[in-house]
Design a protein around this nucleic acid. Structure first.
Lengths: 151, 151
DNA sequence: ACAATGTCTACTATATCACTAGGGTTAGTG
DNA sequence: CACTAACCCTAGTGATATAGTAGACATTGT
């Protein structure tokens, strides 16, 4: 049930991009430093995200990355599936990578039915939380902390 | 986000045990054949489950395994945690294996807050589904199919 | 005694993870 | 035009986890 570092780093970077009021690019190095991510590893991750159509980039001097779509149109689910593959705990309940299992009848397999619930619970959260949501929640909390500190 | 074969086999075996009206033992070999699980691998798994207090066994002739508690008092969560470790996608939201992450403030980390939702969603299902539930759902469906076929 | 069962530990092949390395391409700047 | 700053792409690598196999040992019923 684990999110890989790949997934973790990718999400962090995208949330950072979402927080950084859209449309101005950010360099990989910048993101890597802010989030403490190995630079070359992050390169690969952002590239994969770009090839999946979630990011766009500008090359050369003053280059960098920016979100391919508005932050509230990119869900965490899309990101996780791109970087970590299927969200389902077992293949026979996966939408994106279904594979029949060995049990004689899928509809009478207690394990499968339970894991289907798990898959749906995970997908529900991941597919209904956008980068904008994640960025907003972070900022809201941060603002609350700052105003408390200011008193 | 994946359940290992270890976890899968363990759950299948326990659900099978739960379905097999309690208190009479089942041999490892029996379980392995019914569920198509490599015998020696299943041995290890059941042993781990026993050491975790979820199973009990009788040795020697007519030996075998049986549930340490009633099937409606063992949750899938207990099994998964025993065989696959923490249910949380990242350590910093884990109950059983918490570990601080690198972000400066855990309460303003957008990723962490989202993953906390995911963890809770998973735990909700796993900790509220018992072996009895899983076994019952399987049987119910099976009965429905049989009665439909009988008509 | 012996056969059928669970117990325990060690080993192994393969895959996956988390990177690192390094060369290539594009685009501004002096 | 040369140079440099950025992204692009592929290959390699060491460590760890996964999914088993193997085999000796312990217990119990007949």
């Amino acid at each position: 049930m684990r999110l890989s570092k790949r997934g973790e780093y990718g999400l962090k970077a995208l949330i950072e991009l979402a927080a950084n009021d859209a449309e101005d690019v950010i360099r990989i190095r910048e993101l890597a430093e802010r989030e403490q991510i190995p630079l070359k590893f992050l390169e690969q991750i952002l590239l994969a995200l770009k090839n999946a159509g979630l990011l766009q980039s500008r090359r050369g001097v003053n280059g960098g990355y920016y979100l391919a779509r508005p932050a509230d149109e990119i869900t965490l689910g899309q990101v996780v599936r791109t970087l970590d593959g299927p969200v389902a705990p077992i293949r026979c309940v996966s939408q994106m990578a279904y594979e029949r299992c060995v049990c004689p009848d899928e509809n009478t397999c207690g394990l499968r039915l339970a894991m289907l619930d798990v898959r749906n619970a995970i997908a529900d959260v991941l597919d209904h939380t956008t980068l904008a949501d994640a960025a907003r929640r972070a900022n809201k909390r941060a603002r609350k902390m700052r105003s408390r500190a200011a008193r």
